[in-house]
Structure formats: structure tokens, C-alpha cells
Amino acid sequence: MPYRIEVENLNVYFGESHILKDINIKINTNMVTSLIGPSGCGKSTFIRTLNRMNDTIPTFKKDGTVLLDGKDIYDPNVDVVDLRKKVGMVFQKPNPFPKSIFDNVAYGLRIHGLNDNDVIANKVEESLKAAALWDEVEDKLEMSAMGLSGGQQQRLCIARTIAVEPEVILMDEPCSALDPISTTKIEDLIHKLKHDYTIIIVTHNMQQATRVSKYTAFFLHGEIVESGLTDKLFMEPKDKRTEDYITGRFG
């Protein structure tokens, strides 16, 4: 199976500071890949490079290539809007819009030109079901999303992302602001989604990485120290630094 994402010699700078150094990694299609590493090592910066969210930061500069399905996403002819439709993102803090639950999910559909209300309603239901939230919100779709619990808000954000039918879903520590029960729900959801989506999840919870992902990459000081099958990386790390990190002898 071809790789969905291939990153070659990626370097990222914010102004003067060199944040990501010579990143090379291939991401398999329709599998879950975890990114682990101490905080500040560049995990968020890396996944935000994959949907070009870093473009919103004026000081951002990069070199190297990022291929999605074999095509360079930083090619001048590529439209970020189309790219971000294909590469969805779930953020660390749940960030639903201050709108109704329904409108949150319908938002992406509408901005991409869908205006048949029946179709939208169907899609919203489908997405909420896929995000395992439907049963909880079925009868209060018009309620403000701000009234949901943190875990529900995060699943709503996932539903919102799924609704626009991306190929890839980036998740930046999606559970770090959530309680254990909500975390379990999101992890179950990831298991369900991995058959249809390529998922890249940042986590600093190593158990979570072992539970949800097939592949793992270990970041340190802006470099990928080691990457490969999750089981292998945790059982028999090749690099001393990886071993130190996963055995907790580290930052």
C-alpha cells in the first residue's frame, strides 16, 4: 500500500529559531500513527505543517517537501483551502464554535457549498453517529455547543472534522484536557475511525500511544529520534534516548 504522507528533509523555522530539523517520515494509509515526545519538542509544529496551519504564523518558514498522496502540499499551485479539506484537524483544547451543536457540524458542509438542508441534516446525523455523540445530543441539536462537557465538545469537534470527509485526521493531544472516561470514549472512537481515515495523533501519554496506534514516532528537540511499529519502539527501542524517555528517565 502506498504511503499517504511522505515527509522528506523537512526543516521548520519560526523567525530565527530552528524548530524542526531534518524530519523524514512516511505515514501509512488508514492507520494510526502516534507522535510522542516531551513538550516543546515540536510535535504540534510538525502536524500543523501537514495541513499548513503554520501558514497563519507570519514568522513561519520551511524547507524540504511534504507529499500527500505523492503531491507536494507546499506547491504554489496547491490551494490551502482544498488541502485543509482533505487534512482535518482536532485541537488540544476543544474549540467548538459558539453556535448550536447542529451548526457546528454543518459549518464545514456549508462553507464547502452544500446548501440542501435535508442533505446537511443527514450528514450531520451521520457524522455525530460516527463520532459516537449522536445518542447524547440527538434531542438537543439546537442547544449551544458551549453547554456540552469537555469530552462531548471534543467529540463534537471530531464530528465536525469528519463531516467534511477528510482523508487524514490530525489530532493534537485531543485528550489532554479531558477526564479518563471521556478519554476512553475518544480512544474507542479512534479505533473505529482508523479503518476509513489516516490518523496522526500527538500524545504525551505513552499508554495511549500503545493503545491506539500501529506506528509511533519519537520526537526530541525538533528531531525524530526513532520511528516504527509501536510495539517494537516500546519493547525494544534502538536508541538510548528513546529508551530513557519511555522508561521515564527523562524530562
Binding site: T56, D82, F97, C157, V164
Partner: peptide, 13 residues
């Protein structure tokens, strides 16, 4: 800014 980020990440202009 989180609101804008969420919207941009969905492919909104």
C-alpha cells in the same frame, strides 16, 4: 484565535 483555527482547519477561507 481557537475559533479561527478551527474554521481554517476545516478548509474555510
Amino acid at each position: 484565535f481557537e475559533y479561527s483555527e478551527a474554521s481554517l482547519a476545516l478548509g474555510a477561507t
